[in-house]
Write a protein that binds this DNA or RNA. Structure first.
Ligand SMILES: [Mn+2]
Ligand SMILES: [Mn+2]
Ligand SMILES: [Zn+2]
Ligand SMILES: [Zn+2]
Lengths: 136, 136
DNA sequence: AGGTGGACTGATAATCATGTTCAATAACGA
DNA sequence: TCGTTATTGAACATGATTATCAGTCCACCT
């Protein structure tokens, strides 16, 4: 669970999950990351992977993209700021895109709306050049 | 299923689902819409509501917003073009927001990316003024 | 070093939204 | 009207995620 102040203790396993995520070339789901770790010889339970990713999401250390299929996919966030990504629907390759224009638009919409605590989701999904070629 | 040309037959039930959706003041999930219809006296199965909404989504007659909780919420689309919405997390009230700036940004990102068949998701969720007041 | 209490782990079971099956039903066209 | 065919919906299946809880580990104190 969590300590008195709500923080999670950085354990061996939890650290391993985030390290594994850092090493992922494409965005991954919790289950994919778990399989990956097991395949590499790490002994870890699926529950722990889910917990570590949920915590990392809540504390803003990862970016999340909600695929149309309802599963969440994660990507390690390098700078402090969140990013938005263009993701390949076929191979899950992802590249960050510059979203200054969107951030500015969000800010202006929010300031005119009267809404508070507004969060935004911006996702782009398509088929990358390589996968287009592979499709003949 | 579907007719030879892939079109769904517009049946009584299916029409009723879309009519009910049109009458919704806030974005609704499939289950909420089903409960609403049953409460109003319509006799209809949950499967049919799911099917009608899925079909409406595929044919572009509704806008869909994927809540963080993994459930899809629907809103009837009036004009031909899709819209993006600012949704209240508390009461599910939704208002369309002008997103010309975002559409232009998406177009420019896509043209520079080499990706094909790119689809975009833009969602804003917050707490509306009324619900802020209600929270004291 | 040894003890202790609270946090962590993971196998298992529970949820939850949504999809699928299939026998019964309703709608179309001749 | 009759026969063909799509539609319907109750029950069941799925797939991702979360909750349980007994066992384990670890930080800290003596
Ligand atoms: Mn952003
Ligand atoms: Mn748009
Ligand atoms: Zn690809
Ligand atoms: Zn509200």
């Amino acid at each position: 669970m969590s300590t008195a102040d709500g923080q999670l203790r950085p354990s061996h396993r939890r650290t391993a999950v985030l390290e594994a995520l850092k090493g992922c070339p494409r965005i991954v789901s919790a289950q994919e990351l778990h399989m990956r770790m097991v395949a590499e010889g790490t002994r870890i339970g699926l529950s722990t992977v889910y917990r570590a990713l949920r915590d990392a999401e809540e504390t803003g250390r990862v970016d999340v993209v909600q695929a149309g299929t309802g599963e969440k996919r994660y990507r390690w966030r390098r700078g402090g700021e969140h990013r938005h990504y263009l993701v390949c629907r076929v191979c899950a390759a992802s590249r960050p895109v510059g979203a200054e224009a969107v951030e500015a638009w969000v800010a202006s919409v929010v300031s005119e709306s009267g809404f508070a605590a507004v969060e935004h989701t911006v996702e782009l999904a398509g088929v990358c050049a390589r996968c287009q070629r592979a499709a003949d």
